[in-house]
Simulated assay, not measured.
Amino acid sequence: MTVRVIPYLVMDGNANEAIEFYKEALEAEVMYKQTFGEGPDNPEYPLPEEAKNRIMHATVKVGENQLMFSDTFPGQNHQTGNQVTICLSTSDPEKSKKFYDALKQDGEVTMPLQETFFSPAYGSVIDKFGVHFQIYTEGQH
């Protein structure tokens, strides 16, 4: 089982520009990049046109480390200070649940831990100190 702590940068529509900047400035290598428009369709929630080219998720490698990126969804709150989160990435769903349950104590759940199309267990919380965490479980579900 692995556990990694990865800085996660949330941008307001300019994640692709930031990725290109870090490619040049930090010699970063893009490992993965997907826009909201490239994600699966959900007929119950049609994707607004202005969201289609925004980055849903990207991972870049800088040296031996990773940075992750996404854009906010159009209309979602974004302010300086909450654009950097910490992604706890693990290969064990039980470990993800343990981290999630511990971090949400006296904190705020921003997304319940749940199965998604990209993770068997994903959720996000703001802990009691105001630190934003994403809990990501690697692997297929």
Rank of each mutant, 00 (worst) to 15 (best):
F133W: 14
Y136F: 08
Y32F: 14
Y32M: 15
Q79F: 06
E24M: 08
K23N: 15
D127Y: 07
A18E: 15
K98C: 14
A18K: 11
A28D: 06
G130C: 05
D92N: 11
T59M: 07
V3E: 06
M56A: 01
T80I: 13
Y100Q: 12
V10H: 03
S91Y: 01
P7I: 00
L88G: 09
G81S: 11
I19T: 04
F21A: 07
F133H: 09
E49G: 09
F99C: 10
G81H: 10
E24N: 09
G107W: 01
V10Y: 02
I126W: 14
K23L: 12
H57W: 03
L26S: 00
R4S: 08
K61I: 02
Q34R: 03
Y8P: 08
L113E: 04
V125T: 05
E44T: 14
V3G: 06
F99N: 04
P112Y: 09
Q83P: 01
H57Q: 12
A121T: 12
H132M: 12
V60Y: 01
V30F: 03
K23H: 13
P120F: 05
Q114G: 08
G39S: 13
N42M: 09
E49D: 13
S70E: 02
E29Y: 06
E27L: 11
K23S: 13
V62C: 05
E29H: 11
I55S: 02
S96A: 15
P112S: 13
L9K: 12
T137C: 02
A121G: 10
G63D: 08
S124E: 12
A102K: 12
Q83G: 14
F99W: 08
Q66D: 13
N42V: 04
N42E: 05
I55V: 15
E38F: 00
E50F: 04
E50C: 08
M56H: 00
D106S: 10
V62K: 03
G13M: 09
G37D: 01
F118H: 03
F73L: 02
F73C: 02
N53K: 08
T137P: 01
G37V: 01
Y22D: 01
E38P: 00
K61W: 01
R54F: 01
N53Q: 14
I135M: 08
P93C: 02
V125F: 08
I86M: 11
A18Q: 14
D92E: 06
A15K: 00
P40Q: 13
S119M: 09
M111F: 07
G37C: 01
L47P: 05
Q134H: 14
V125W: 07
M31V: 15
R54P: 02
E64T: 14
Q105F: 07
N77F: 11
V62W: 03
I86H: 03
T35C: 02
A28H: 04
Y136N: 07
I19A: 03
E20Q: 15
F129L: 09
R4L: 04
N82A: 06
F117Y: 10
S124Q: 12
S91G: 10
